[in-house]
């Protein structure tokens, strides 16, 4: 449904998106994940014909974004990161205006507007459709933006940070709404919050520093990023003796310790697939050290994501210092 090949976008000398390629199948929900400034919004703006690529070929719903831009825009609905609206217009009036631009026949317009408003919870309170856009709260403006996107029931939906500025209840209903679009629509959404996209998306594309850092289903990603195991234990005992005892175990790469009150917290980095929990318990029992915690930590997607974000910021800092 969406096909991106060797896409590069430069703003002057700054490279925002650096030679990325990906493909999105029809009917799937794809999450674009990355720290701020990673190039997510730029990519989405190119998909929706708001910006032109410097290099590369992008096709959406079978149309080229450059040569058949109007056809692409007819088949997509794009909700920008910060939804901005004409403050002087009323909600209903604005949606009718947008429906006209979307080539919805005059007779079908009112029905389309009402349908979209209902899906986006705009019919409550009763006078909502008559309120001025400039007077709406952030959350309601977001809903109007979403209703606008759903008006013409487009096959492709591009949502840039759809849940930003919403309260927790609204985030949940937004999530349900996006999930209800699965199958009929191809949805591509961006976020810098992992937990959010992990739940909704069939496929994740992690982007950092303008490049694709990883991509795959959430499960596949989680498997691929689980690094070496880590064991955390809290014992009471002589720090030197503990370090010596643990350090002598087989397959231990690194041991760190930190005082927690009068307990000693040790973190053991082991080889891949190693598990030192039994040995630690045995050692503590032998030496008579009280043991109050012993657990294995598995590298999460979150860790991986933070790692990428960290790498990007280090790189950016490096580039700045080189300038």
């Amino acid at each position: 449904m969406i096909d991106v090949k060797n896409l590069t976008k430069r703003y002057g000398r700054m490279v925002a998106v650096d030679d990325i390629s990906f493909h999105v199948d029809a009917g799937s929900i794809v999450g674009f994940l990355g720290p701020n400034g990673a190039g997510k919004s730029t990519t989405l703006k190119i998909l929706t014909c708001f910006l032109s690529a410097t290099v590369g070929k992008v096709t959406v719903a079978g149309h080229d974004v450059l040569s058949e831009s109007v056809a692409v825009r007819q088949k997509t609905g794009y909700m920008p990161e910060a939804v901005s609206l004409y403050g002087e217009m009323r909600v209903g009036e604005y949606l009718m205006f947008r429906a006209g631009l979307r080539e919805i026949p005059r007779r079908a317009r009112r029905g389309a507007v009402e349908g979209a408003a209902q899906r986006c919870w705009l019919l409550q309170p009763e006078d909502m459709m008559r309120r001025r856009l400039g007077e709406l709260s952030r959350g309601y403006q977001q809903r109007v933006g979403l209703a606008d996107v759903l008006l013409h029931n487009p096959p492709v939906l591009v949502l840039d940070e759809p849940t930003i500025g919403l309260d927790p209840a609204q985030i949940r209903s937004m999530r349900e709404l996006i999930l209800s679009l699965r199958g009929d629509h191809t949805v591509i959404l961006s976020s810098h919050i992992l937990a959010e996209v992990e739940q909704i998306c069939d496929y994740l594309i992690v982007i950092a520093g303008g490049k694709i850092a990883a991509s795959g289903t959430p499960e596949a990603l989680r498997k691929s990023v689980t690094g070496p195991s880590r064991i955390v234990a809290e014992v009471k005992g002589d720090p030197d003796a503990v370090m010596r005892g643990v350090g002598a175990m087989k397959g231990v790469r690194q041991v760190d310790q930190a005082a927690h009150g009068n307990w000693l917290r040790i973190t053991i980095q082991g080889d891949e697939n190693s598990d030192h929990r039994a040995e630690v318990a045995k050692l503590a029992a032998e030496k008579g050290w009280p043991l109050r915690e012993l657990r294995k930590e598995v590298g999460s997607l979150e860790d991986f994501f933070i790692q990428i974000t960290y790498k990007q910021s280090v790189q950016a800092a490096g580039e700045v210092s080189r300038l």
Binding site: F50, A71, R73, S84, E103
Partner: peptide, 14 residues
């Protein structure tokens, strides 16, 4: 200035 250009130019209008 207000950013409405983004919604305007991503609608199917030339």
């Amino acid at each position: 200035r207000s950013g409405t250009i983004e919604t305007l130019m991503t609608a199917p209008v030339t």
